[in-house]
Amino acid sequence: MEHERKNDTVTARITGELDHCSAQTIRRELDMMITEPGVRNLVLDLKDMTFMDSSGIGVILGRYRQLRDRGGSVAVKNMNPQVERVFTLSGMRQVIKTM
């Protein structure tokens, strides 16, 4: 997965579909990025993510909980309308910033 680190923040670009089938790989890749020493914040660039269902909610909230426990945060940007509807419905807007 394409990603970029700046100080204590990693920006990762998820491409394609985030469902139960792809969740395990995406989860593992994101966990590798956020467990690097010094990383506190994760930004998910979803410009090229074409689909997400509730399995994606689990992946995003799971990373959020890990980083929150270390005093960090998760933010998302560039959601397509389908992804945004699932995101809003799940109540994630309350804890995950959109930028």
Binding site: G58, L61, G62, R85, L89, S90
Partner: peptide
Amino acid sequence: EKERSGMGFSVMQTF
């Protein structure tokens, strides 16, 4: 424990 959030049926009902 498998990071499920219990939102599947809510998504179906909303959509």
